[in-house]
Design a protein around this nucleic acid. Structure first.
Lengths: 248, 248
DNA sequence: TGCTCATACCTGTCTATACAAGTTCGAATT
DNA sequence: AATTCGAACTTGTATAGACAGGTATGAGCA
């Protein structure tokens, strides 16, 4: 079998196959849940051996981009995009996993023109349209997170039409948009009067603020600022280096 | 070649080889920097094919446990143990990587009997001996971290004799003890009077507190509580899912 | 109509072989 | 003595072939 695929030397062949698959996903040709070219098909199409195709697919699965099911096939995985400390899953899932009751209250859900700061963070021009959602999350009836989210309108056109009851905003975006870059910032700050009122704190009480931006290609999908009461919330992980993290 | 190694079925052979290597490292038989059994030696000793041995070593290297150098050999890697959000490297390295000047001031360096709380956290009996270090770190002359560290005496016997100037406590432990489990907790709190005085804050100002415990096997190596001024410090990462993280 | 079984397909692993490219080290040559 | 060259090692990649175990589907039978 001659190498009719990727005549480019100096790069490993299995790397080229990985890149080939990655581009199909990132370009949007393959969406979340779509079936991916099987190993035998890659052998036929690219002229590589099955072991080479297998390694490419296996490593992409280990990286979280794909999901492989023996006997069935390989599929584009949902954007898990978990960091070891922070998971890009909704707070609802986290609360339920602790065995507690989650409630959420949508305080604001509109489209608005972007302020210069928000425009800059989302890669928009100032004054462009942007989706804005403010949501208060309660754990067993106690406020635990104030979520202030901006969404790039091109990334999730149906965002405003969603009613966020069972499905949370984070979950909705995760299930429809495959992320390929995430930025987290954690800081401690004081509660403003408004924040304190919503979280049931006194103004000036310490808060843990988690800011997250996610990318799809070069475009920012969402910018979200989650404020937690400092005395009721901590963020943690225990993990084996190289292994899978858990959330504490 | 018959499989005279790991007759245990139901487990993949390369997994068994990985576990075999891992145990050598975790048991302490192989220390940081030591040479690891080469692929050909594994073929001879375990009766597996070179590709199987290669896969085991390659994956362990990808997990950070080993370091492979083409043409030279495979070695036990230093305890990088980096999380995507938090690296178990010293604050000194982080400050210098920002191009700033780092100074540290040892406020306390003793052996003492463990309080019940500390004993519990380190897996000691109450009243047992424990190393205790308190250190203030400055970035360009400004206090940026108050480090309060307890070290299991069995894990690092020479800890008290160290003078922490060029080599920081974290670096010292990393270079001598290979970690295999890490726990992080991040929380926001108010500065106590003493903490405020040392960090140059007002009592009640918000602080970002990072608590970390590291394990070697079943034993806790160190418990450290790092308190940062909330207005001068943030913790962040930007990374591609599956890729290598950077520190922000 | 409903059930069973054969077949085709998919992933997962393991082996044996081959070549490439790097290093280390010692012996032979200059 | 200094240098060069080659043999012996190392890891990295790629291939072909084989088997195992899972799933999905459709044909044939009850």
């Amino acid at each position: 079998m001659t190498r009719n695929f990727k005549a480019n030397a100096s790069t490993a062949l299995y790397q080229a196959v990985k890149e080939h698959i990655r581009q199909q996903v990132q370009s949007g040709a393959w969406k979340v849940g779509d079936r991916v070219t099987s190993e035998h098909e890659l052998v036929a199409e690219l002229g590589v051996s099955r072991m080479t195709a297998h390694r490419a697919l296996r490593e992409l699965a280990a990286e979280g981009l794909l999901q492989r099911i023996p006997g069935v096939g390989t599929f584009v995985a949902g954007g898990k995009a978990e960091s070891s400390l922070l998971q890009v899953t909704s707070i609802a899932e986290e609360i339920r996993s602790r065995g507690h009751r989650h409630q959420s209250e949508v305080l604001l859900q509109t489209g608005e023109t972007a302020s210069p700061e928000i425009a800059s963070l989302l890669g928009l021009r100032s004054g462009e349209w942007v989706f804005h959602l403010v949501c208060l999350h309660l754990e067993d009836g106690v406020p635990i997170q104030l979520e202030d989210r901006y969404v790039h309108p091109a990334a999730a056109p149906g965002f405003l039409q969603q009613t966020f009851g069972a499905v949370q905003p984070g979950e909705y975006l995760l299930n429809s948009v495959p992320l390929d870059e995430v930025e987290h910032v954690v800081e401690a700050s004081c509660a403003s009067a408004e924040t304190a009122a919503r979280l049931g704190l006194k103004p000036g009480d310490p808060c843990l603020v988690l800011t997250r931006r996610t990318w799809r290609g070069a475009d920012v999908v969402t910018y979200v600022r989650c404020t937690h009461p400092g005395n009721r919330y901590r963020l943690g992980t225990r993990f084996k280096p190289g292994g899978s993290p858990g959330v504490g």
